[in-house]
Design a protein around this nucleic acid. Structure first.
Lengths: 233, 233
DNA sequence: AAATAAATGTGATAATTATCACAAACCATA
DNA sequence: TATGGTTTGTGATAATTATCACATTTATTT
């Protein structure tokens, strides 16, 4: 039996944002316990969801890091975004045709929860606060993603690589120094460029002192200049 | 006073889809009358919303045709989608930062309604069915849009022009013959190509007999071939 | 209907990026 | 530490698309 929980939303301890999925989850967490939702550990490289498959459960990324991607007709992978913990995977699909449009693979060992679709839907209908928070979460996510994509689309390779570095630094890892969680091949897939072009730009940035590269580790030395390059297009 | 309306959703008479915003509106229509929502007529070319402005009302496109667009840093316009009647404009913005991320301009004389944000939000909280339908509508729309964009992004100019023609034929006008609601300059903006390249491809398609062009009117003679070109990338 | 402005067509050229081919560096593991 | 595999670096070249410049057509205004 599901009972609507009075509309008290807490903010997520990590990001202090009441629209963060972690905060949203607080309502459903009670339900999850009741419903015996499955919790699972996935290893780095594991595929969590396949594009084209039916949505049978909602998947909540409790801890870890995941890439969202599709396969382009030419066979190449297109990475759409890096998904951080406290996020539902592919929520929009649930509310459209219930087919997963994207694939998800773990970039690190991660913890995920499977939540029953019907529980979720009942919660939404019975609890307006919950519905509103999910709406906010979905809208923010899709807007951010779409905007990032649109802005990239007309930029030259320098601007695009700069964007990608700033994306990892700012949005994914929130740190000027970070380890690329995959190869340059995949980095190129995220940006939508050839591997060679991507490498060349990275080396150019390195030679100009804007960034430092040691193995998979990237350090931004001059964020302002990177921003400038990104803006210039 | 807003009262929750028992969850009976009708399908839209036009598109027979209960997730169509027209169906969703049925619930709020009653409210709209109560709240004295403003109805307005806009002329072809009028700008309905400016990117960057605050969301003060929700705008519902009752009749007409509208383009959603942004201005790229290089000054060029990027048309994101063509919005048909029975659609809320920029709904995702309402649920994120309440700033309109895109601009909207009328491609034909159109009728729009202004709905108070608070009415909308109260409806969502008080009526789970309504919330769910809005969620569905937002998710479908953003998925479709994003997918269209991603699929385009790696295609060559032929595939992209083919896509755009199929988009107008299938999604916007639902007819093999349609009038471009704007110039080829704007058509190019929608596709994200230069005007000259776009023109050249159109002429190529025309010379190959795949389409016919008379002024602004385009007729698709060979939809299968167009599909093929789109798929080939 | 003439004049003016706007949109479209087209060749030549330049800029950008992908592709190919292979060398060098790095990594895992026997 | 040798060895095979993968990833990264780099030059040369080809493919694709934008840009420029201008002719031609079409639309709008007086």
């Amino acid at each position: 039996m599901i009972t609507a929980i009075p509309g008290k939303l807490n903010s997520c301890h990590d990001c202090k944002d009441i629209s963060c999925a972690a905060a949203v989850l607080k309502i459903s967490e009670l339900e999850l316990v009741n419903m015996n939702s499955l919790e699972n550990e996935v290893k780095k490289g594991d595929i969590i969801l396949h594009e084209g498959s039916m949505t049978s459960h909602i998947i909540y990324l409790k801890t870890g890091l995941v890439k969202e991607f599709i396969r382009q007709p030419n066979g190449r992978e297109q990475i759409l975004q890096i998904v951080k913990q406290h996020t539902y995977l592919g929520l929009p699909s649930l509310f459209s045709d219930r087919i997963n449009h994207y694939s998800y693979a773990a970039l690190e060992n991660s913890h995920i929860c499977y939540i029953d679709i019907n529980v979720f839907n009942r919660l939404i209908r019975q609890n307006g606060e919950f519905a509103q928070q999910i709406l906010i979460s979905v809208c923010k996510d899709s807007l951010n993603n779409f905007n990032r994509f649109i802005k990239q689309s007309h930029k030259k390779i320098y601007g695009r690589v700069a964007d990608a570095i700033l994306y990892f630094s700012g949005i994914v890892f929130e740190n000027d120094r970070f380890d690329l969680p995959f190869s340059q091949r995949e980095f190129a897939d995220l940006i939508g460029l050839s591997r060679e072009s991507t490498t060349r730009v990275l080396i150019k940035f390195k030679n100009e002192g804007i960034i430092s590269i040691k193995g998979k580790s990237i350090t931004i030395n001059n964020p302002d200049l990177l921003e400038q390059i990104s803006l210039k297009g």
